[in-house]
Structure formats: structure tokens, C-alpha cells
């Protein structure tokens, strides 16, 4: 019993990677399935965080700080992306009173 608990508590690389995949999957699912632009943006954040977690897990596992540096960069890019994305969503909402991405198709052929 003691042994089992210890094994479960000893979190290894695989646990992180599985969590990352779960995050990435939820995010991808959200991007594909949801129609609300805001939700899509949030899902993209999840995807990015899934990627980040992978980076950090490997960085820890390989004792290589470059992974962490890259993760910081991803966070910065994600912040910028969120700012611009939200601004666009707000702009779109002011014009169309709607953020359903299926209806934002003025530029289709």
C-alpha cells in the first residue's frame, strides 16, 4: 500500500507530458468546435499552455534551462497575441454586435 502511494506521488516526466497532451487536446477541440471568437481565443491559450508545459517538463527532465527560456518567450508572445486578439474581438463586436466566427466572413471570395 505504502509503495503504491509512493509510486503514484512520484510524479515523473510522463505525467507532465500526459497533462500537456490533455491541455493541447482540450484547446484544439475548443478551437475546432466552438463558434464564439472569445472562446476560440481562450482555447488557443490552452494550446499554448500545453506546449509550454511540454517545454518545461523536458527542460526539467534534461536539466536544460533553454526550455524554460523558450517557455518565457512563448508566454510573452501569448500575451501579445491575447491583447491583439481581444482588441480585434472587441472591434468586431462593436461593429457587428456579434462574435460568432461563422458570420465573420466578409472577406470570403
Amino acid at each position: 500500500m505504502q509503495q503504491l502511494v509512493q509510486n503514484l506521488l512520484a510524479v515523473g516526466l510522463h505525467h507532465y507530458l500526459i497533462l500537456a497532451v490533455v491541455l493541447f487536446g482540450i484547446g484544439t477541440f475548443g478551437v475546432f468546435m466552438r463558434r464564439n471568437a472569445l472562446t476560440t481565443l481562450m482555447s488557443i491559450e490552452l494550446i499554448l499552455n500545453g506546449g509550454n508545459l511540454t517545454l518545461l517538463a523536458f527542460a526539467r527532465s534534461h536539466q536544460d534551462m533553454r526550455g524554460q527560456a523558450l517557455a518565457l518567450l512563448v508566454i510573452a508572445v501569448a500575451a501579445a497575441e491575447a491583447a491583439i486578439g481581444l482588441a480585434i474581438v472587441v472591434g468586431v463586436f462593436r461593429n457587428r454586435h456579434n462574435t460568432n466566427i461563422d458570420e465573420l466572413n466578409l472577406l470570403r471570395y
Binding site: V31, F32, I101, D102, L104, N105, L106, R108, Y109
Partner: peptide, 17 residues
């Protein structure tokens, strides 16, 4: 090519993936 520009954002994302 214009057939791909159908305004469906999600399809664009699938294409990217």
C-alpha cells in the same frame, strides 16, 4: 484557390494543423 477562402475560420485552422 478561391474555394479554400470560404470564410470558415475553423477550416483554416484545420488546414494549418
Amino acid at each position: 484557390a478561391q474555394r479554400f477562402q470560404n470564410g470558415d475560420v475553423q477550416r483554416y485552422i484545420i488546414a494549418v494543423m
